[in-house]
């Protein structure tokens, strides 16, 4: 009885030490949590989550101040990915913050623009080019479609245009291929 107990205890101790050592020795240095969360967020920088950008929202999630379901551009997939990362139960996207919409890009009606530069100040990713009192335009590749320039424009010359699928970026539908 004693033998058995002591042997097992000793084994438990040895394995425990071994595991403890392995945990320290082979520790995988991961990104800080904020970076990992930020990597999942869509970087639209739209502020629909009530934080002034994706990074601040990531910080808020990491510190537990915000829920994971406040990012409409990330969609339900984004919420699920965050839940998986944080190892928590996934939630449905909170519609108070908005609904996911197809990706869009801002287009300035250059004839109407008065060159007030308000949009330049509002844009979170500096996608506007222009200067005071001259026409302003958008670098389409840089625009994240965040809508933040829309309310500030005094002459409503900015329009959000949906990015249409082209032959080049077309993704076939595999649902059509599904089985019997």
């Amino acid at each position: 009885m004693f033998d058995a107990t002591s042997t097992l205890s000793l084994l438990a101790l040895l394995f425990g030490l071994g595991l403890g050592y392995a945990a320290i020795r082979y520790r995988v240095e991961g990104n800080p949590l904020v970076d990992q969360i930020d990597a999942i967020l869509p970087q639209t920088q739209c502020g629909q989550c009530d934080f002034p950008g994706c990074r601040p929202y990531a910080e808020a999630i990491a510190s537990g101040e915000a829920e994971i379901n406040q990012c409409p551009p990330g969609g339900q997939e984004g919420v699920d990915a965050l839940a998986e990362l944080l190892n928590i139960e996934t939630m449905t996207l909170n519609e108070e913050h908005g609904e996911p919409e197809p990706k869009r890009v801002a287009v300035v009606d250059e004839d109407v623009c008065i060159g007030c530069t308000l949009c330049i100040q509002a844009c979170p990713v500096d996608a506007f080019v222009g200067s005071s009192k001259v026409m302003t335009t958008v670098i389409a590749q840089e625009c994240t479609g965040c809508d933040l320039c829309i309310p500030v424009c005094p002459v409503d010359c900015i329009e959000m245009v949906e990015i249409k699928p082209t032959v080049r970026n077309y993704i076939p539908d595999i649902a059509e291929l599904a089985h019997v």
């Binding site: 930020d38 869509p42 970087q43 639209t44 920088q45 950008g53 994706c54 990074r55 979170p124 990713v125 500096d126 996608a127 590749q141 840089e142 994240t144």
Partner: peptide, 10 residues
């Protein structure tokens, strides 16, 4: 694009 947006935002 997200990497670019992130770095531009930052």
């Amino acid at each position: 694009q997200t990497d670019k947006a992130r770095s531009r935002f930052e």
